[in-house]
């Protein structure tokens, strides 16, 4: 794929068409942006707690917060233990992940039940112990990380309030991969 790097000086020609096609590609995933240099921008996030650890979920990625029902549709046979089951919501059966058990090292997650669910935009629903108030995380209060191989979902670490800042797109991809097959909507 050839891409025009800059928009300057692209009068006519096939380069412009390619540039426009790329920019307007509906299927392209939204990639992580480099944090803006020295800007005072804030990230609106919902801080939830699971296994004693705070997780900051970008508000824009949160579809809904709801109390966990007593029963969830059974997870598929052979699914990892952190896959609690499936929540029937809006006609779809959406996989529910125990946030702490899925993301924290073994032994750190603590015992459930996790009484609150956070439905992310998309497919995944996260089970947690507590849902806090939304906060605006200052850029300087977060140590941003490059996406790593081990915890690709970890976008950074916030200091006030202390929380792991989650990249929801990469979290969903990571959960999809870790859950293996069988979590598709029935």
């Amino acid at each position: 794929m050839t891409r025009v790097r800059s928009a300057v000086g692209m009068e006519g020609g096939g380069g412009l068409a390619g540039y426009l096609d790329d920019l307007l590609d509906e299927r392209a995933p939204r990639e992580a942006m480099p944090a803006p240099e020295g800007s005072g921008q804030r990230l609106e996030a919902l801080v939830v707690e699971a296994g004693g650890v705070g997780f900051a979920l970008p508000q824009a990625a949160v579809e809904a917060v709801l109390p966990a029902p007593t029963r969830l549709a059974r997870p598929p046979r052979g699914a990892p233990a952190w896959l609690l089951g499936r929540l029937v919501r809006g006609g779809a059966r959406r996989p529910v992940a125990d946030l702490a058990a899925a993301l924290l090292p073994r032994g750190r997650a603590g015992a459930g039940p996790r009484p609150w669910l956070v439905a992310l935009a998309g497919r995944w629903v996260l089970a947690c112990d507590r849902v806090g108030d939304p906060v605006a995380l200052g850029r300087s209060e977060v140590r941003w990380r490059r996406p790593g191989e081990r915890r690709p979902w970890l976008a950074g670490v916030a200091s006030a309030p202390p929380a792991l800042v989650v990249n929801p797109t990469r979290l969903a991809a990571w959960l999809d991969a870790a859950a293996g097959c069988g979590t598709e909507d029935a």
Partner: peptide, 12 residues
Amino acid sequence: ERRLGARPGMGL
């Protein structure tokens, strides 16, 4: 423009 270049989908 410089930082994001022409990343696919950025026009949306």
